[in-house]
Nucleic acid binder design. Structure first.
Lengths: 124, 124, 124, 124
DNA sequence: GTGGTCTAGACCACC
DNA sequence: GTGGTCTAGACCACG
């Protein structure tokens, strides 16, 4: 479920943060579902528990998970992250579009991509 | 023309790379135009020449500039970077769209953003 | 009467201590009134009796309740905690005021807050 | 300048965060002033550098300092933290006042404390 | 068993 | 020299 790419320049903990974010955002993990314990995931990935710990604390800070000491870490309600995350991604979209525009990419090609990926146009 | 933000988390050389990339992509600098010498830019920005050197090496690796020993550094022809760069950004676009879709963002909102930014639909 | 927030960073027993303190200070529970037995409260809140036990021990240490073996736990006379608690809060008040002063907060704003909250000016 | 209290229940890194916050808020350290390097402070306090590192990262997250890799850590401009910090302290003030009120503390005593500490009533 | 903190020691990127 | 990351191993509070 989580793969570490040691050739990636980004730190391991950041890769874990991003991966779990994806799993939550894409609905693979549901609110209040327990995520792997620090120790278990550390063993799974053959990584030091401290590194997992750092990733989990960052995820909590971002509002994607919440921690119950002695119990484990759990996925937060959508309300804690949905709005902020969508806003963030819209910002990224804007940046990418500006660059694509400067590169002279055809608007049609972009529109096709949007139609292909965003099949559902139902709001949440 | 180039501004360094020391509070930015990214290394200085990376900021320079990105900035010059922008200048080239947006046409501010034209193919075969000479870019500032390592020494001059270092003095201008009051930073270590090694840092500029590293930035220029990266830009050369990416195909945005080429070096002529004893002459200086020059902007490459569009052909050496346009295609690869556009492909890269299209990849980013795809990732962002997938996430926006998962977040339940309305397709209409994305299309509006595309129409707003990509005013020109002329191909390269 | 007592609500546990598992997402709270503070340990459960501390939440219970604070909550019961509030109930006593605000007069909801009167001196010599019996408080729920360890066992009953544990069942009510669906938590481990050890946790309740720890909370009650802390409350006893602070002078808010006293234990009668074989009978249960009871709210102490005001004399055992009122003075110490007030002193403690006056210390906190001082610290906060110093910081607010350093931050350049207007004295008037603070005075307004005091007038708003401390409606009764009857001494104990 | 910074003292660690090992009897304090709070983690060391949190004590450091609070202490440096105080130094900044109270104007002992000025914007853009360099704070001790991670290694130096670690040696000074006879503490592991990782612990200092954690404290500094938290301070950066809170907007009190900014980091320049390879250079050190520096105090942020007041604008990054003044408003939020003042708001936070006003919240603490409110809580304390409510408790003092419930304890039957005389309003006059509180007003005296305010007058004593907040000598300057000049706004920022 | 769970997360939270800390130490000791190491390597890396950056400047 | 500076901060950033990571490992290995330890102890603690909590439930």
């Amino acid at each position: 479920m989580i793969q570490i790419d040691y050739r990636d320049k980004r730190p391991i903990y950041e890769q874990i943060v991003e991966r779990i974010q994806q799993l939550i955002v894409n609905g693979v993990m549901s609110p209040n579902e327990k995520i792997p314990s620090v120790r278990n995931l550390a063993i799974d990935l053959s990584i030091n528990p401290n590194t997992i710990q750092k990733a989990y604390q960052e995820l909590e800070r971002l509002g994607f998970i919440y921690t119950v000491k002695g119990k484990g870490n759990f996925v937060s309600e959508e309300s804690s992250w949905k709005k902020a995350t969508a806003k963030e991604y819209m910002g990224s979209l804007k940046e990418v579009l500006i660059s694509l525009n400067a590169l002279g990419v055809n608007k049609e090609d972009v529109l096709i991509e949007v139609q292909n990926i965003m099949k559902g146009d139902a709001a949440s």
